[in-house]
């Protein structure tokens, strides 16, 4: 037990290693408490990522033992795999189009909502959070953008005489990407958004008063001089949620536009990964694709974290 026993130990008498060992012995209960979660966390989160790195350097199909191939998978991917390049391009487009937009939109809406009275605040939070919470609600877009005249948009465009024949929304290469990006933004008011709402409520009212005394005259200055600096920690969390969501994008495309979509428009790295993992059983190659997703997403996260930390310093 970590009871504060008066032990005759003095940090000065010990080497750093001895001191660490002493702390470990004294607080062993901490490790015991952490252990159950740590087992599942290591097994199903950490090891899979690390092992993917290793397997990406092999050729593996789960039946035979992995065969070392060095960087062949990566060379193959970047030089001979046109679909990989398509997936990479689309993943980047989705990430750039949805990530920052989702982040900024979530913050702006949360900031708007924060200026409402409490009842209105709770109601509007529910309205914006609902699409993200109910993951399958987006299936309604299959009806809204249905290919025939019974679909909402086609029906009305025909009725109003704006088009002569129904548009095949989710099969038309012109529309797949914009639609999927729009739907992704519709669903983007998620955990990060809730964090913003909560963070804004947590900013100390006295600070706004102090700012008013110091000469802040409107809410825009308040936002810049008081709110944003106070929200930094929540902005960091929100950015992680937005970026990680943007790079994992793929399910919505599969459900609405099919897999693969027409001419591979909207085909992302997640789809390419699925193709090699579940259809072709080339797991080494699939791991190499997942490593690329990992590097892109993790890299973007670290970069943005650095940028946000710089704000106001």
């Amino acid at each position: 037990m970590s009871k504060k026993v008066k032990v005759d130990v003095n940090r000065k008498d010990m080497t750093k290693l001895q001191w660490t060992w002493h702390l470990m012995k004294q607080n062993w209960v901490g490790y015991v408490f952490l252990l159950p979660f740590a087992v599942f966390f290591l097994l199903f989160t950490v090891i899979p990522v690390v092992a993917s790195l290793a397997l990406s350097l092999t050729s593996y199909n789960m039946i035979q033992a992995p065969k070392w191939v060095g960087f062949d998978n990566y060379i193959q991917m970047f030089l001979n795999d046109d679909l990989f390049m398509t997936g990479l391009k689309n993943t980047l487009i989705f990430a750039v189009a949805t990530g920052p937009t989702a982040f900024i939109l979530s913050f702006v809406v949360a900031w708007f909502i924060n200026q409402l009275p409490p009842k209105g605040r709770a109601f509007m939070t529910l309205i914006f959070y609902a699409p993200a919470m109910t993951a399958n609600a987006y299936t309604i877009f299959a009806w809204i953008f249905d290919r025939d005249s019974y679909g909402l948009v086609n029906g009305w465009l025909l009725k109003l005489g704006l088009i002569d024949s129904p548009i095949l929304w989710f099969s038309n290469t012109k529309y797949i990407m914009p639609l999927c990006i729009g739907i992704s933004l519709w669903m983007s008011f998620g955990t990060g958004f809730l964090s913003f709402i909560a963070g804004l409520q947590g900013v100390d009212k006295a600070q706004y008063e102090a700012a008013a005394v110091d000469g802040v005259t409107n809410r825009w200055q308040e936002l810049w001089y008081v709110t944003l600096p106070n929200m930094k920690e929540h902005l960091l969390f929100g950015s992680v949620m937005a970026i990680t969501g943007a790079f994992g994008y793929g399910d919505v495309v599969t459900i609405l536009a099919g897999s693969p979509p027409t001419d591979y428009v909207g085909y992302t790295l997640s789809h390419h990964l699925g193709e090699y993992a579940n259809v072709r059983w080339e797991l080494g190659y699939a791991c190499a694709i997942s490593v690329v997703i990992f590097l892109l997403c993790f890299g973007a996260n670290i970069l943005i974290q650095k940028l946000i930390r710089k704000v106001g310093t």
């Binding site: 899979p48 992680v240 970026i243 994992g248 990964l273 490593v291 997703i293 997403c297 993790f298």
Partner: peptide, 11 residues
Amino acid sequence: LMIPAAVGGIV
């Protein structure tokens, strides 16, 4: 938190 679920999916 910074890694999409798909990354570790295969392993």
